[in-house]
Design a protein around this nucleic acid. Structure first.
Lengths: 212, 212
DNA sequence: GTCATTTTATGACTGACGGTCACTTTTTTC
DNA sequence: GAAAAAAGTGACCGTCAGTCATAAAATGAC
């Protein structure tokens, strides 16, 4: 009994330390020169030894992946809190898009990390377990969003078709927009944050509604 | 006179060597483990010394940037060859989208390089000169595409609005789609290459047409 | 043809990083 | 309180981007 209680306390402490490492890492990864942040630096900021970091995370990649998961789990929590009004489907869609954009802009500190984990080569060398963690999250988003799309189709508000293609279109458009919003506007002729946001929201709404 | 001729020959040779380096680099960068390809390896494949690479390119980043430019210049050449039929505006749009997608899929060897140069941190540390090279290219694409959009609006085929927002929407959607197509499908619930391509093309067409 | 000058090529060297591992310290167990 | 287990640690290794002193080649004046 005592053994179990102590074991649980230890476990909590262990997890708490893990959060400390993640917090320290995010702080360092959010700034300029993030790519040259070393595990040594993270360890020093978390006030532990370098080796200890590797007791919690198998590699720098795993640490980054865990941060990305934390980011998307937070997004899922937020969108799930949003109420969906079946009598105002299109307005609800737009509100949710804007909420998701806002979440990304409010958590810009994750931008390097999230982008890192989207890299082709990162995905290719990622462990199977990470892949399925991420697929689970993707599935959770789908399961939450699909009923809304179907409801909109039943009401004739958007073109009738399988949800799959709509997802792909939204996914592409949304991720591309985040890339633009996070990158800043030095590299393209497009407008400022607000203009991009309005333009892409309108484009996405038209894409979701589809052609009659 | 002789001096000038020799100087030109030297210059051609110098540029030729530059192409050799770029070709060797692309060959190595297109494969798995591209991120751990060293300048040493590139130099060996080009059969020159490591220092020589740095006589042509100021940094590894510059080499990668030059490859990315080559990729997008190639795309511009291809789309400009495509004829635009003012009586078949929407069909022309779709044909051009598909052409651009095909170009990306036909040149997958550039995928790591192009993605690398889109990274937020790469853009942040990039030299001003690179930035403007890229802006020039972006401008060339706009100047080529805008008349088509305007023609479509005059014919009432797409919703009337400034071209800016349309660009942003297309840009976001297209880049997001390329990310999906290049990444492979292990990391998302979406379909195979063809399904993604069809879905995104339809989504983009609806987005460009807009809501009446 | 030859020698001085400029241009180009080179690879040993440097500093820094991710990851390992033999060892120390702390905690648990009996 | 001693043995066993768990957690913490930082010196060390191999590797890489980029530098720089030096070598080689090309050029041009005479």
């Amino acid at each position: 009994m005592a053994a179990i209680m102590k074991s649980l306390r230890k476990q909590r402490e262990f997890e708490r330390r893990e959060e400390d490492i993640l917090d320290a890492a995010l702080t360092l990864f959010s700034g300029p020169g993030w790519e040259s942040v070393s595990i040594d630096q993270i360890a020093r900021m978390a006030e532990i030894g370098k080796g200890t970091v590797y007791n919690h995370f198998g590699s720098k990649d795993e640490l980054l992946f865990r941060l990305m998961l934390r980011f998307y789990e937070g997004l899922l929590v937020q969108v799930k809190q949003e109420t969906f009004d079946p009598n105002q489907v299109l307005t609800s869609f737009e509100r949710i898009f804007r909420l998701a954009f806002k979440y990304h802009l409010d958590h810009r500190e994750y931008r390097y990390v999230v982008e890192y984990c989207k890299r082709i080569d990162f995905r290719e060398r990622a462990e199977e377990a990470w892949r399925s963690s991420f697929l689970d999250l993707d599935r959770a988003f789908s399961e939450w969003g699909d009923p809304m799309l179907i409801s909109a189709m039943e009401q004739g508000l958007i073109a009738n078709r399988p949800t799959g293609p709509i997802h792909m279109g939204m996914h592409a458009c949304f991720n591309g927009a985040i890339e633009m919003l996070w990158a800043g506007s030095d590299w393209c002729l497009h407008g400022d944050e607000t203009e991009i946001l309005e333009a892409v929201t309108a484009f996405m709404m038209a894409g979701v509604i589809g052609q009659q």
